[in-house]
Design a protein around this nucleic acid. Sequence first.
DNA 1: TTGTAAGCGTTATCAC
DNA 2: GTGATAACGCTTACAA
Lengths: 351, 351
Amino acid sequence: MPAKPLPPVFAPAGGRATIADVAEKAGVSKATVSRFLNRRDELLTPEIATRVETAIAALGYSPSPMAQALKRGRSRLVGLVVADVTNPFSVAVLRGAEKACQQAGYLLMLFNLGDDSQRERDAIQALASYHVEGLILNTLGRDEGAAAAVARQGRPVVLVDRRHANMQADFVSLDNAGAIRLAAGHLLDAGWDDLLFVTEPAVGVSSREERVAAFRAFLATHPQATGRIVEASPGAPQPLEAALREQHAAGRRPAVLASNAVITLRVADAVARLGWTFGRDLGFVGIDETEWAPLVGPGLSTIAQPTDALGRLATACLLERLQGLDVPPRQILLPGELVVRASSIRDPGVN
Amino acid sequence: MPAKPLPPVFAPAGGRATIADVAEKAGVSKATVSRFLNRRDELLTPEIATRVETAIAALGYSPSPMAQALKRGRSRLVGLVVADVTNPFSVAVLRGAEKACQQAGYLLMLFNLGDDSQRERDAIQALASYHVEGLILNTLGRDEGAAAAVARQGRPVVLVDRRHANMQADFVSLDNAGAIRLAAGHLLDAGWDDLLFVTEPAVGVSSREERVAAFRAFLATHPQATGRIVEASPGAPQPLEAALREQHAAGRRPAVLASNAVITLRVADAVARLGWTFGRDLGFVGIDETEWAPLVGPGLSTIAQPTDALGRLATACLLERLQGLDVPPRQILLPGELVVRASSIRDPGVN
DNA sequence: TTGTAAGCGTTATCAC
DNA sequence: GTGATAACGCTTACAA
């Protein structure tokens, strides 16, 4: 029988204290320490409990989540995949999710796609390899492989803002249809009846598609309004400016409905270049409230998304699933809130 | 001798494939698979190598970073503590850091303080418990405990934008003094000689303190300019507006130098409330370039921080340390870039 | 009520 | 060259 190497008698050398150090210091077994940690109340002599407790305090011990994860297969980690951290909407959601996670004792692992949908699959696998217990996905929703990757992991997933083609999962989002009705209805009420819906290329991105469809539906049910849809892609500002010019040439004052904050920036840029003024030469409402919306021109009207709630709810859904809730995929749609500023108020002095 | 339980002959049940599964499928030992993974070239019969390779492919195996971390004490994880994810500057840096990490095969673990400096210490400990190999800190820099926590971990740290009282670590930041000189010099050149430096409460936050000091120094060396420092705290917009009003009452046209984007928003707000116009009633340069700077009033002049480079360099510093580089703490200061827009051009029609 | 020992998925140190 | 085998820090039957 080979001589068993004695456990070291000295305090933890360089690294952190381990459960073995605590056990030794308290004069008990590792199992006892583990029990104290996990099921403090059950079966524990008060005397031993205090011995363990003081040992833990003395050593400044805290368990290694890595080792725990390895053993129990749970990591207290939630993966968050974000299409683009530069997008304030995503960040706002992230913030909500992060708060909720921290409150529940989870840590967030972040993977930013940088708008490169190719990497969605990598992201999911990278996160999965760290045994994240679940995923919150705010992605382009185009990567086929991603769905498969998720399915293979068998971990709960919550989709935020964008649905995913082949992914059966809880979905948390702005009520896009309602938001469009709210915005377009407001413009109509304010006297703008010539609407221009401006969006990023919509194909394949569910939230954009839904907004476009809702706009179409609005037009169909409101014959007193005329409308048009313009796709503004990053490279080419022309179509947007051209569309605006055309309207003016035809002697009309259009109102723009911007499908998100990125588009709002482009519209503001075009308007500045044309030398137009919001509220006078055109009406405007944009989806996504931003800190700068009040400062552009006379102030831009917006539909504020409940970003914080979206993030919190997404996390809440995920945590419920992690606790074993087994119901069919849910959809949670939250209403947007109209913030009226001068850009959508028709300047009485004109026309 | 108790009967050794036979390893399962079937494919990995529910979870992911492990190194043992691969070994079995390839008909070799775990050690061989591990060798193949880590030191592919050394000592490996081509035939065995291919057998392992195909087994890995067939099983879709990838090693568990958790287990690796447990074994080698390295996790390929970098912790990032951000004072406030809502701050576009922080996000921009985050983005740079994230890119660099991904390229180096590291994953970023994010902890957001939500501007609550009390949680800095918690953040560091939470991250440390996941065996992050190093930390990138963009914090308030006020938490005493945090420094101690870091020291205890003995892991490399890089400070971004804000120094930390008792922390000896690499430091990556905008050259604050240079940026202030650049901005103030530009205003002076443009004919504004009555400067108002607006900052958030500076005490204890190194970047703010440095900027204030640099502004003082600028005034000292440029007697042709007069100047004043205003602290604008979140709750009270009064001091700022009051200061602007006073200047006008005295028949002067001040120029504001905003110490960051948050202040820029407050200034723009105050200016809107006063009914003033940038470039005519006051001059303006703000630190931090934003996407909306061109759209506010006639366009706001800014000092653009090299955010992406800051993030990348911070990561680079950290990775060097992780590879064993042992030199005294470094300071990397990057220059800001002046972006001139109409807000700092003195309207020739007035005065 | 507590201790012993096996095992989570790796890597590293030996033998062979 | 390759294979046992012992860790890494923890949890959990099972034994005592």
